[in-house]
Nucleic acid binder design. Structure first.
Lengths: 154, 154
DNA sequence: ATCAAATATGTCGTAATACGATATAATTGC
DNA sequence: GCAATTATATCGTATTACGACATATTTGAT
């Protein structure tokens, strides 16, 4: 009985479920918008990651893999589909020709702008639900891990 | 120029990307845990939804579809796979024999408890990042929609 | 300089899964 | 009692991420 972390309460399960449902609801919304524009959710996500980094530096296939938490070769395939859809371009980097730079096409920029505007609007709606949920989770988590796990440093 | 909602800034894109990355990081963590237990992420998610509702009422296939935001027939297939993996049982409801009740098996309970404990611990780590992100997003969203879109009631 | 090791990306076959179209079974309302 | 509705299931199809493997480029030790 010195391990409360193995005993989950009803409230724990319900909060975990609500958390996932809230995430899922947002993702489903974004998915719907992407689909209406002829993209999959992952394709939209890739465009967003490329755009976000574009203000700072060039995006390589490997960078994109890190951003999407995919294997590099899975990312290469995603890049294939994005190039085929005229959403990004693919160019070997000059200094290190192993690397490949991906950049948005005008069409990619336009589609991403539309979808991102829509999603930002949706986030306005969802944010309060998320905040309430996180507050609730903080409390649960405190009860859950108890005083014995303050430093999880591994 | 009276439509600032079509003009996204660098910060908008970066925040959207960070939001998705934070979500993705948690989902990837949960996915990894599920995989180690021999389940897919969706299978784990289904178990969690069933468990969370079990305190209140029986879970039907249709209920589950609503919880996971899937089509009912896709959910039926997911239920097939869960039954095959000995994680849930499937029984026709007595009062309305069209409906099917799904319940966790002992194995389902055990696996879910392990995964949920792990995820709850991870949430402790991720929650602060989420909170910071949401605060930032609230600010962005305010700037973004401006004073002209207070009531999005559709 | 040269070549093995490391790095970065790409290809192909495979498995999982969600959907559309369609089907079956049970219930409801008139 | 029968048409319309509701609830679930099946089958074929498309997408997609991965493992295993392949290729190209750079780096580092000698």
């Amino acid at each position: 009985m010195s391990h409360p972390s193995t005993e989950l309460t009803q409230a724990d399960f319900e909060s975990l479920a609500r958390f996932r449902f809230t995430i899922r609801r947002y993702l489903a919304f974004a998915e719907q918008g992407a689909k209406a524009a002829g993209l999959t959710s992952q394709q939209h996500q890739a465009l967003l990651a490329i755009k976000a980094q574009s203000f700072t530096s060039e995006m390589t296939v490997g960078d994109l893999a890190n951003r999407l938490l995919l294997r590099p070769h899975s990312t290469a395939e995603l890049v294939n589909r994005l190039v085929a859809a005229d959403l990004i371009t693919r160019d070997s980097a000059v200094h290190d020709r192993r690397k490949v730079h991906v950049r948005l096409t005008p069409r990619g920029e336009a589609v991403l702008a539309t979808l991102s505007a829509r999603n930002l609007r949706e986030l306005q709606t969802v944010t309060p639900a998320f905040e309430a949920l996180l507050l609730q989770l903080s409390d649960l988590v405190e009860d859950f891990v108890g005083p014995n796990d303050c430093d999880t440093g591994a």
